[in-house]
Simulated assay, not measured.
Amino acid sequence: MDWKLELVFVPVSDVDRAKDFYVNKVGFNADFDERPMDGIRFVQLTPRGSACSICIGEGLTDAPPGSAPNLQIVVSDIHAAHDHLKNNGVDVSDVDVQAWGHFVYFADPDGNKWAVQYIPGRES
């Protein structure tokens, strides 16, 4: 039996601002944005090519905004990822070259921290 991680909750203070950031600046796909009942808004966003999505919304978690643990995305071209983020107005770090990968770092408007990693020698 496979156990697949498919959804990670990311606590935010302003759903519309966060959705705009992830879709228009980072480049995630907006898969779902619904209010299934009073007090609940469920927004699912997925990085291109990923089997795992993030969820933001209202009434979904008691976690304070900005408290998501460090989240990580793996890409096949760290320089293209860096340029994409920077060109879209994301405050992104320079490329950090480590023995186990090349990284760039950014945070969403609430301070949820992200690492983007390129793993040398790994096929995409």
Rank of each mutant, 00 (worst) to 15 (best):
V12P: 07
G49Q: 01
V75D: 07
V74N: 10
A115H: 09
D38T: 12
I78Y: 10
P69F: 05
D110F: 08
A115R: 08
H84W: 13
N70L: 13
G39P: 09
D83H: 10
I78K: 02
I78D: 06
A30Y: 02
V97P: 00
W3N: 08
L60Q: 14
D20A: 15
N70S: 08
D96S: 11
E34Y: 10
K113I: 05
F106Q: 04
S53E: 02
D94C: 02
F28L: 03
N24I: 00
V10F: 04
F21Y: 13
N88Y: 07
G66K: 11
F103I: 09
V104Y: 01
F106L: 02
I73L: 14
S53I: 05
I56Q: 03
D14E: 13
G121M: 10
W3P: 00
L71C: 11
N29V: 04
D14P: 04
D33V: 10
N87P: 03
N87T: 09
V43K: 03
S93C: 09
V95S: 07
S53Y: 01
A30D: 10
V95G: 08
V26F: 00
R122A: 15
L5R: 11
P69E: 06
A99L: 12
C55F: 09
R35P: 00
S67A: 14
A51R: 13
T46P: 01
P69C: 07
N112D: 03
Y22C: 08
P11Y: 05
D38E: 15
C55Q: 14
A63W: 11
A63M: 15
S76P: 01
F9G: 13
V104S: 07
V23M: 10
G66W: 04
N88Q: 06
Y105I: 01
A51H: 10
G101D: 05
K86D: 11
R48W: 00
N87R: 12
A63N: 13
S93V: 13
A80G: 05
D91L: 05
A30S: 13
L5D: 02
D91M: 02
H82Y: 09
V90E: 09
D94A: 12
V8Q: 10
S13Q: 14
D83I: 03
M1E: 11
G39V: 05
